[in-house]
Design a protein around this nucleic acid. Sequence first.
DNA 1: ACACTTTAGATGACGTGTCAACCAAATCTG
DNA 2: CAGATTTGGTTGACACGTCATCTAAAGTGT
Lengths: 155, 155
Amino acid sequence: MNETRWLDDEEQRAWRSFVRMTEKLNARLHRQLQTDSELSLSDFAVLVGLTDVPTESLRVSELAAALEWEKSRVSHQITRMERRGLVERVDCPNDGRSAFVNLTACGRKAIEAAAPQHVETVRTLFLDHLTRAQLKALGTIADQVLEYLDSADAS
Amino acid sequence: MNETRWLDDEEQRAWRSFVRMTEKLNARLHRQLQTDSELSLSDFAVLVGLTDVPTESLRVSELAAALEWEKSRVSHQITRMERRGLVERVDCPNDGRSAFVNLTACGRKAIEAAAPQHVETVRTLFLDHLTRAQLKALGTIADQVLEYLDSADAS
DNA sequence: ACACTTTAGATGACGTGTCAACCAAATCTG
DNA sequence: CAGATTTGGTTGACACGTCATCTAAAGTGT
């Protein structure tokens, strides 16, 4: 059992600020979407995932892969969204186990209505406060960290 | 109704990476804490909040302020943690409405056992992949954004 | 003292997320 | 082809978070 290498002052401060920022940012974005468009960030993610493909339809497992969500999470989410008419499940003819998730007209309307406001909020709450250089730097940081996290996923 | 100013390529990419990183990071940290120490990040936050004061005891509202959580969230969390013996509620003698949340011996033991591993994980998953300059830059970004978010809270 | 408002906190309903168990169709293997 | 395994997905239990509602104690004003 080694000595713990605690965070020094700078690390402490940066890490705390970072965590606090992401939590607040997330809470704000969620709230904005919820109150303005009656969608959660999860709803939004699913709708984006579906609109991103030309058919506006994906099998549950494809959706799970695209969002990097667990299958069961997708399943629960789809169940809830189906109740609200945002998406629909359709049995797959080729594969009796599989199910398609289709975007409904209602779902398309919902995301088209929500997206502009959401983007605007991302700007107001976040992007507006960064210079281009900072944006670039942040992107690099995220990609570096993701490279590790993704590789660790694989193993 | 103005034209929506969609994100340009660089913004899109950086924002996506950032979101993806925070989600993954959060999931990993949560999982590590859960499997190694049987604590959630929320449990951990509460325990840190309590150990941060000399008395290891805070009123619910003070805890809520310290963590920037809603009172009801704190209340639910404390209820769950109390069931597991990590904290205890004690009626406040001065103020009949108020309740203290005390760290228990069990709770102190839990966080003391969990903290070193958690810090190590923060390093492995995140800090190790940043240079000092990047860490500093990230801290600055977070503080800039927080300055806005905090000011927006006040109003 | 009495009514009015504010404050501290608890609670219930509901959406969300994870884990483990499960089911049935598909596929592989002897 | 029969039996085992793998794959795609669902389900139930439970932790978590938010919102709205509620209770009771404190504080306020007359």
